[in-house]
Amino acid sequence: MVTPAENPEALPPFVRRPADAEYVPLPHGGGFSLLADASDTGGTLGANALTLGEGADGARPHFHALSHELFYVAEGAAEFLLGGERSTVEEGGLVVVPPRVPHAFGAARGSTARLLAVLTPGVERFGYFRALGRIQHGLESFDGLRSEQDRYDVHFLPTPHPWR
C-alpha cells in the first residue's frame, strides 16, 4: 500500500456514515442511500445502497460505456438481466457487469432487495439518482434523462426492450 508520505497526492480515506448519506425515496417503499460520488473518491468509484420494494424494478435495460458496475445483494433476492441472460441472485451474492454489457435489475418476484452498487471508475451520478426519484414520483419525465446519458454514463437501450 502506498502511504501519503510516499505519494503526497494519494487520497485520504473517505467515510460516509449512514446518518450523513442523502436518501432519495422511491414510491414502492424503497430508495437510494447516496454513499460516495466520484468527487468524494478522486474518481475511483461511486457507491449507493438501493432498497427495492417487493418485485420492484431497479433499472431498465442500459449499459455503461466507461465503468464496471458491481452489485452486492445485502438482503433479499434480485433478478438481473445480463446481456441476454436472466439470473436471480440471493442474499450474499455478487454480480460484476463489465463496460458495454447491457443489464437491468430489480427485486425478484415475491422478494424485496437491498443492494450495494459500486461503479468504477466513478462518475458523478448523485444527480442521476435524484432525477430517478423525481421521475418515479411522477414529477419529471424519463425523457429528460435521455439527454444526460453521456454525462452519467448510463446509456439506455431502445424501448420497448424485453425485461420484465
Rank of each mutant, 00 (worst) to 15 (best):
Gly106Tyr: 02
Gly42Tyr: 05
Arg146Glu: 15
Val24Tyr: 00
Gly46Asn: 09
Pro25Met: 10
Thr3Glu: 07
Leu82Cys: 04
Pro98Phe: 04
Pro158Phe: 06
Glu9Lys: 14
Thr112Gln: 13
Pro102Lys: 09
Asp57Gly: 13
Val95Ile: 10
His64Gly: 05
Pro160Gly: 04
His68Pro: 08
Ala49Gly: 03
Asn7Leu: 12
Ala74Trp: 02
Glu22Asn: 05
Ser87Gly: 12
Val15Ser: 03
Glu6Thr: 14
Glu85Leu: 13
Glu148Asp: 05
Glu91Tyr: 06
Ala65Phe: 12
Leu157Glu: 02
Ala131Ser: 14
Gly76Glu: 10
Pro162Glu: 15
Glu54Ile: 06
Arg151Thr: 06
Pro13Phe: 14
Glu124His: 06
Tyr72Ser: 06
Thr44Ala: 15
Ser147Pro: 06
Ala10Thr: 14
Leu157Lys: 07
Gly110Met: 01
Pro8Gln: 05
His62Ala: 11
Pro12Val: 13
Pro121Trp: 05
Glu79Thr: 13
Leu139Thr: 14
Pro13Leu: 08
Phe156Asn: 03
Pro4Ser: 10
Phe63Ala: 01
Leu50Met: 11
His137Glu: 11
Val73His: 01
Gly55Leu: 05
Gly84Trp: 03
Ala107His: 00
Phe32Lys: 00
Leu35Gln: 13
Glu85Lys: 09
Phe14Asp: 06
Pro98Lys: 04
Ala104Arg: 00
Asp153Tyr: 04
Asp57Lys: 04
Ala36Ser: 03
Val101Pro: 07
His161Ser: 14
Ala108Gly: 01
Arg17Val: 15
Asp57Tyr: 11
Phe71Ala: 12
Gly43Tyr: 02
Ala77Asp: 14
Thr44Arg: 15
Ala77Ser: 15
Gly83Trp: 05
Gln149Ile: 07
Leu50Val: 07
Pro18Met: 07
Leu115Glu: 02
Val95Trp: 02
Leu70Met: 14
Ser141Asn: 11
Gly29Val: 06
Asp143Ile: 07
Thr44Val: 11
Leu145Ala: 04
Glu140Thr: 05
Val95Phe: 05
Arg86Ser: 14
Pro25Ser: 09
Ala21Val: 11
Val118Leu: 09
Ala49Glu: 15
Ala131Tyr: 02
His103Asn: 03
Arg109Gln: 10
Thr41Ile: 06
Glu79Val: 08
Gly127Arg: 06
Ala117Leu: 08
Gly58Ile: 03
Leu139Phe: 07
Val118Tyr: 04
Gly93Phe: 07
Thr44Ile: 09
Tyr72Pro: 00
Pro102Gly: 15
Arg17Ala: 07
Val89His: 02
Asp20Trp: 03
Glu75Trp: 09
Glu6Trp: 05
Ser33Arg: 09
Ser141Arg: 08
